[in-house]
Design a protein around this nucleic acid. Structure first.
Length: 968
RNA sequence: GCCGGAGUGGCGGAAUGGCAGACGCGCGCGACUCAAAAUCGCGUCUCGCAAGAGGUGAGGGUUCGAGUCCCUCCUCCGGCACCA
């Protein structure tokens, strides 16, 4: 018998497929029903393929092959994301040329990727550092530039001192460079940006219609961070009144705009806070130099300088609030006209909203912490609301609410540190002592009276009135009316336990008990009880929810939602704000796409004319940037010194290069028309394939590549260059393959699995299939590489091989007893591949093989079918065994087999017989046997156990079980 | 802190509300062998000699029946986080 020599088999078929051009994908294929675009993120040519690449490329290849067998014309392309820092760093370290390093790596990786036997169409390969590719990256960039979507601006940028370049926001993780983990510093620099923020709304809203996993959408929404609120305007008093010069006064801003998502809390604003970078301060500074009308300017300036020097990381450290008041000026409350202090503090971020806030310490935890530290006033203006069943009953719709002022007395007994609790007799209601206000009474009088009447305690002292009011809406059963009770919470203490008699009427209604603070939360059943428990547990509790307005002048009794609308309208305007910032795309590095813009002393920024594209990277002596914020290209005078395309005067090329995420924002479009010399991709070609049907890739790209390319595509759509506003119809994130120890593979840990070595030893089919078997591909998780597990898959393939040889040696008719499993296998494998559950598909293939082994034989037609099912997983072996049977074409050109419905059900089925849900016996019946028959057989099977018991109910689930429910 | 996702044997994992642990790994026993490897066969959730009982992160609930549905909590992973 021929031994399974994976090397010979794999080499043979890889060469044959290549020769036949089996995977060269036409834009239209005769006989194929539809085009299908399966995309997987193209690799960076690091020089070596790792297991992750295998997982990324060879497993989706199963799906590609499956779709082809279903008559789809599948585009499964590959290329290289070839610009980027590692090439330069390697070049600097080893005195190489980044171009040579990169192309050498690509050469090696092509061979490694070919060894997978993946069905990539190499004729469409795309390499982003080819001038023929980046020519179009430049061209597209210029379309953005002409539309005003690409702009250059002086902004604070994230500077990585180690990489010596600026980074986009997305490339900073916890204040560190995503690449080298160096702490990023803020540097004011002139940089190129793309207006991704213009697309924030659409990037957010269009997620809804995408067939993407919800967690990915959520992560993008969080990154975009849209919040809806209002911009409110505050007049500044004192700032404009110049003592010396009226002319100066004009320069000083008279108002400050704040952004808030809670305009309903306007009356709770007790001070204003500006970010240290707020432009108002700059105008004040100019003013202050002349007049000194900020009394403590020196102190303020010192604070600003200090804050600006801090890194993001330092600002966040400890989160201890710092700040300085601007003495000499006041903000005027737009509604009350009251004057309030203005502060500068770095807990307010310059880049978000308007860089200024109205502080509402009563309803914002950060403002509260600040106010507490600096002793600023706290004014409570939102009263919590509890709707629904308080124990009395849920509100009846349609009935008007009868409003009542009431008190809620929290009485503490200092002797044993317990609190008075009220149990309503006869109903399941436990809470605090409450009661209504009688006419003419104030709330303290009312509370003292209620305490005396209900409990008899007479020697009670008011400790504090925290000003909390909570609104409870409920149905009053006795009065048969909807109630709106406004409970004023008051804190009392017993001076002594002196008591007087309580009326019988009260006695019948209530019972009073004393509970420790830690028992309250579980004890109370009413809303106000839980709320009071919260207040007692946390004296610094800040209520940040919506509610009903109080202390808010004419807005009192309005609810938050309505008040937001009305106050926004009256004192400001609605405003949406985003966390997302514009995409900073310029890099001070060599190995990237040169930004195709020329700076002319006369004409300003001039785009490089189309016919002069591409602007090719020149050779340089030194790849390491000087670290002063200039790219190495700035040293190549013969390259950057050019005549202005417009006036022919002296001009200079832009010397920054583009972020590599720009290159990867459109590579999938180039795959549709990779050789086009006239366009980045002809619209007609695009339309054959776009949008991408399924995009498989790594989770790390959720808020980087995936967001960038969505934006890029939308911009192209608006420019009329593509036909759809979303590039990827469906997206799937891939899991991570870990080392055998379950840890992330790393050289330092010594747990790196080298796929080349495993392929050499066990073969590509084994590696592919093992990776597909390791866990579901449609879920994101981490899977450890198990060296024994790979061997297990190899064992399976060897058994397949053995049977294959056997079938070749003596073919035979189909074996009837195998038909059932075979057809079930066709169904299961097909469905599981479609759902990307390759692991269970493989397990079903194993089940079939186990069955043939048990049967001791298999029919040739049955075996052929099995080989078709195996083909996507182990393409080489399937092809070898297929052609050994004398087939005249590739198994990969076969159609996916169809299963016959009649084999889906067996003749006989085993049912479980349960008594009260516990399995007591098993019975075998004809499939779909009638209920009565099943019940009879079941009853017989457990007759002994049922003896003397009354069967209350019998549940029969067809073909599954019979359950007898008996007494006790 | 907020928003997602997940917790099932020794391990990877499987289970339309219907016999938990498919398939694979590992392990144990056996066959073959002088022996070992490879291969093949049988076994393998826990306790128990057995009958049986228990078991899917913990605790409640719904149901004849819950890994699966609902509530509370715990742990791990991912995202966001002084974003007003």
């Amino acid at each position: 018998m021929k031994r399974y020599d994976h090397k010979a088999v794999e080499k043979k078929w890889q060469a044959a497929w290549e020769r036949q051009g089996l995977y060269t994908t036409p834009d239209d294929a005769k006989g194929k029903r539809e085009n299908f675009y399966l995309l997987t993120e193209f690799p960076y040519p690091s020089g070596n393929l790792h297991v992750g690449h295998w997982y990324a490329f060879s497993v989706p290849d199963i799906f590609a092959r499956y779709m082809r067998m279903h008559g789809k014309n599948v585009l499964y392309p590959i290329g290289f994301d070839a610009f980027g820092l590692p090439a330069e760093n390697a070049a600097i370290k080893n005195k190489l040329n980044p171009r040579e390093w990169t192309y050498g790596n690509i050469e090696r990786m092509r061979e490694q990727i070919r060894s997978m036997g993946a069905s990539f169409d190499w004729s469409r390969e795309v390499v982003t550092c080819d001038p023929e590719y980046y020519r179009w990256t430049q061209w597209l960039f210029l379309q953005f530039f002409n539309k005003g979507l690409a702009y250059r601006k002086m902004t604070p940028a994230n500077w990585c001192p180690s990489c010596r370049t600026v980074l986009a926001n997305e490339q900073v993780e916890n204040g560190r460079c995503e690449r080298c983990k160096t702490e990023v510093v803020q540097k004011e620099m002139l940089q190129w940006n793309l207006r991704i923020t213009d697309y924030a709304d659409r990037l957010h809203d269009d997620l809804e219609k995408l067939d993407w996993p919800e967690p990915i959408k959520e992560a993008q929404r969080a990154w975009i961070g849209r919040s809806e609120g209002a911009v409110l305007e505050f007049q500044i008093a004192g700032a404009g009144e110049s003592k010396k010069s009226a002319a100066h006064a004009q320069k000083v801003a008279q108002t400050v705009e704040v952004f808030t998502t809670r305009p309903d809390t306007l009356f709770g604003a007790t001070y204003l806070v500006l970010a240290p970078e707020h432009p108002f301060l700059e105008s004040v500074r100019q003013k202050a130099e002349g007049t000194g009308n900020i009394e403590n300017w020196e102190e303020v300036e010192k604070y600003i300088t200090l804050a600006r020097k801090k890194t993001e990381l330092e600002r966040q450290e400890g989160r201890e609030k710092t700040g300085v008041e601007l003495r000499g000026i006041r903000a005027v409350h737009p509604a009350t006209g009251e004057e309030m202090p203005v502060w500068v503090a770095d807990y307010v971020l310059a880049q978000y909203g308007t860089g200024a806030i109205m502080a509402v310490p009563a309803h914002d935890e950060r403002d509260y912490a600040f106010a507490k530290k600096f002793n600023l006033p706290v004014r409570r203006v939102i009263e919590p609301v509890f709707y629904g069943d308080t124990g009395e009953g849920a509100v009846r719709p349609g009935l008007p609410f009868v409003k009542r002022e009431a008190i809620c007395a929290v009485v503490r007994n200092p002797k044993d540190d317990t609190y008075l609790c009220n149990v309503w007799k006869g109903i399941e209601m436990r809470g605090l002592l409450t009661g209504g206000l009688d006419g003419g009474e104030d709330k303290v009088q009312a509370a003292l009276r209620e305490i005396r009447e209900e409990t008899g305690y007479t020697d009670v002292r008011l400790v504090s009135d925290p000003g909390w009011i909570i609104n409870t809406f409920f149905y009053h059963r006795q009065k048969k009316e909807n109630r709106w009770a406004r409970f004023h919470i008051l804190f009392f203490e017993l001076e002594s336990e002196e008591k007087e008699a309580v009326s019988e009427e009260e006695e019948a209604k209530y019972e009073f008990v004393w509970k420790r603070m830690d028992e309250l939360r579980d004890f109370y059943t009413v809303y106000e009880g839980a709320f009071v428990a919260t207040l007692l547990e946390n004296p610094d509790y800040v209520f940040t929810g919506n509610g009903i307005l109080g202390n808010s002048g004419t807005f009192d009794e309005m609810n938050s939602e309505e008040a937001k609308r009305v106050i926004t309208e009256r004192y400001g305007r609605p405003q949406k704000t985003y966390r997302l910032r514009d995409w900073l795309v310029s890099r001070q590095r060599y190995w990237g796409v040169p930004i195709p813009v020329i700076h002319c002393h006369e004409c300003g920024m001039v785009p490089v004319p189309e016919e002069l594209l591409p602007v090719v990277l020149p050779p340089v002596e030194e790849y390491l940037p000087d670290g002063e914020g200039k790219s190495p290209l700035a040293k190549v005078k013969e390259w950057y010194a050019v005549p202005c395309p417009e006036c022919d005067g002296p001009a200079e090329r832009e010397t920054d290069t583009l972020d590599t995420f720009v290159d990867s924002s459109w590579y999938f479009l180039r795959y549709t028309d990779p050789k086009n010399e006239k366009e980045f991709a002809a619209r007609k070609r695009q339309e054959k394939w776009m949008p991408v049907d399924l995009y498989s890739g790594g989770a790390e790209h959720t808020t980087m590549h995936l967001l960038y390319s969505r934006f890029w595509h939308k911009a192209l759509f608006d420019l009329g260059l593509v036909g759809e506003s979303e590039p990827y119809a469906r997206r799937m994130n891939r899991s991570l393959i870990m080392g055998p120890d379950g840890q992330k593979m790393s050289k330092s840990r010594g747990n790196v699995v080298d796929p080349d070595e495993v392929v050499e030893r066990l073969g590509a089919d084994t590696v592919r299939m093992y990776l597909a078997f390791i866990g579901p591909y449609n879920e994101v998780s981490t899977y450890p590489w198990n060296p024994d597990g790979v061997v297990g898959v190899r064992r399976f393939l060897e058994r397949v091989w053995k049977h294959g040889q056997e079938v070749v040696r003596r073919g035979q008719e189909s074996v009837p007893e195998l038909e059932g499993v075979l057809h079930k296998t066709i169904k299961k494998v097909g469905e599981d591949i479609a759902a990307q559950k390759f692991n269970t598909a493989i397990s079903q293939l194993m089940i079939f093989l186990n069955a043939t082994e048990k049967a001791g034989t298999v029919g040739t037609p049955q075996w052929r079918t099995f080989l078709k099912l195996l083909a996507p997983f182990a393409p080489h072996m399937a092809e070898e065994l297929w052609q050994a049977l004398g087939a005249d074409g590739s198994v990969h050109l076969e159609s996916w087999p169809a299963f016959e419905e009649r084999y889906m059900r067996d003749e006989r089925v085993t049912l479980a017989v349960q008594i009260n849900g516990k399995v007591r016996a098993e019975i075998e019946l004809d499939t779909d046997a009638p209920q009565e028959k099943a019940e009879r057989a079941a009853r017989e099977a457990v007759a002994e156990r049922l003896e003397g018991k009354r069967v209350l109910r019998t549940i029969v689930v067809q073909n599954r079980l019979v359950n007898f429910v008996t007494e006790d």
